[in-house]
Amino acid sequence: MNSIATIKNDAFSEKIEVQDNWIEVLGSCDGLVLLLNEENEKFLVNPVTLQQAKVPDPPVALEKWESFTMHGFGYDSAIDDYKIVSVSYSFNDEDYDTGFVDTFVDVYYVKRGFWKRVENSPYAHTFHDPPSGVFLNGAAHWLASIKDSRHRSVIAAFDLVREVFDEIPAPSGINANFVFCTLVVLGGCLCLVDARCNKKTDGNRTDVWVMREYGSAESWMKFSIDCNYYERYIIARPLCYIGGDEEIVWTTKEESLVIYNLKDKTFRDMIVDGFPAHVLNGCSFVGSLVSPYL
C-alpha cells in the first residue's frame, strides 16, 4: 500500500507498512480510509499513523456468493461519530438483473461499536459493478434508479444524520441511463463522469459534470475531454485537482495515473519516484491524526 503526495508537477510516494492484501477502497473521511481485503474483511486505516481497526460484520451478513454489497463511510456531525453504511442485496442467480429478493441497509457506529438496521432504500441499486458511496455534505451518494416502469436514473444520497435516503437532481442534459457513469467528489463538489459517447458521432469523448452548488439542479456545469490523441489509456475516474484547478489526476482502465490539463487540453503520465504511477485502486484523502479506534 502506497501513499502518493503531489506538489505542483512533482510527486513522491511513501510505502505504508500494513498488510498488503487490500482489494478495494470503500471510502475515505477525515484522514481515515475504509478498506476491504481478500477475505472480505473491512478495516479502518489511518495511513499517516499506520493504525488500523477491524470492522465487525453486520449481525445478519449475507454470503458474498449470494449477494452484493455497497458501502459508504462518513461523519455524523450531530452525534460526533463516524458511520459505515452497508447496502446489501440478495438475488436470484437465474435472473441477475431483475431477480433481487431482499434488501438490507445497515449502519455501523464506529465510536459506539454497534450495527443498526435502518429503513430500506427506495431505489434500485442494481449496477453490475457497484462503486463505493461518495461522501459529501453529510451524506453517502450512489448512482441508482427509481423502482418504476421507466427505471429513471437518480443520484441517491443517504443522510448520515437522519439515516434516510434523499434524491439529488442529476444533470438535465445527461443520458437517462447511468450504467456506464461514475460518481466522485472533485474539488469539494459532486462530480458525474459519463464516458458513453458514441465514438462514430462524438469521437472518443468523456463528459464531466460538476455540481457547483450542492443540491441545486441548475448548478451543474459540464466540460468534455477529447481522448482521441491519448488512445494508450482509457480514463476511468478523476481523483483530485493539482496546481490549483487547471489539472486533474485521473485513474485509467490500465491501472495507471495520468494528468489532464484543462487549459491546454493535454494528457501526460504522472511520474512518481521517476516512474509512471501504477494504481490498482485508490482514493484521495487529507492526512490527519484521527485514530480508527476512536
Rank of each mutant, 00 (worst) to 15 (best):
P131T: 05
D129A: 09
S28R: 11
S145H: 14
V249H: 04
G27D: 11
E39R: 15
G274Q: 02
I271E: 00
S145D: 14
N228L: 01
Y229N: 12
G31L: 05
L32Q: 07
P122A: 05
S256A: 05
C189Q: 12
V154D: 01
V279I: 05
V185P: 11
W220A: 03
T6P: 01
R117Y: 03
D106K: 07
E231D: 14
V208A: 06
R162Q: 04
F180A: 10
A195L: 02
Y75A: 06
D81W: 08
S291L: 03
T182L: 05
V208H: 02
D202Y: 03
N40S: 12
S88V: 03
A11E: 04
L289V: 15
I16Q: 07
D207S: 15
K8Q: 12
S216N: 13
N120A: 07
A78S: 15
V25Q: 09
Q52V: 02
I168A: 01
N198F: 01
W250H: 07
M70D: 12
K54P: 06
I225S: 14
V101S: 09
D10S: 15
C197K: 04
V161E: 09
S88A: 14
Y230F: 15
D264S: 15
E94N: 15
E213P: 03
Y108A: 00
K15H: 13
T69K: 04
P292Y: 07
I16W: 02
T206N: 00
N9Y: 06
E63R: 00
K200V: 14
F285I: 10
H278Y: 10
V25L: 05
S291D: 13
F275D: 07
V48A: 09
E94H: 10
P171M: 03
P59C: 00
A61H: 09
V60D: 13
T251W: 00
E246V: 03
S149H: 13
M1P: 10
S288N: 00
V286A: 10
A5M: 09
A78P: 02
V55W: 00
E255R: 14
D80N: 13
K83H: 05
S172E: 13
V18I: 09
P56C: 01
V60H: 13
D30I: 04
S153G: 15
S284G: 12
T49N: 10
Y293V: 02
G187M: 04
C227H: 01
D159A: 00
L262W: 01
A124Y: 13
L26V: 08
K200E: 15
P56E: 06
R152Y: 11
K116L: 15
S256P: 01
R237G: 12
R205L: 10
F114L: 09
G274P: 12
R237Q: 14
V258L: 05
K15Y: 13
K116T: 04
D226A: 08
E14Q: 02
K42M: 08
L160P: 11
K8S: 13
L143V: 02
T98Y: 12
Y109S: 15
S86Q: 12
G99R: 02
E231V: 14
G31E: 08
S90E: 13
K83R: 14
V107D: 01
V154R: 01
V134K: 12
L257F: 06
W22D: 03
D76K: 01
A195C: 05
Y89L: 11
S284Q: 11
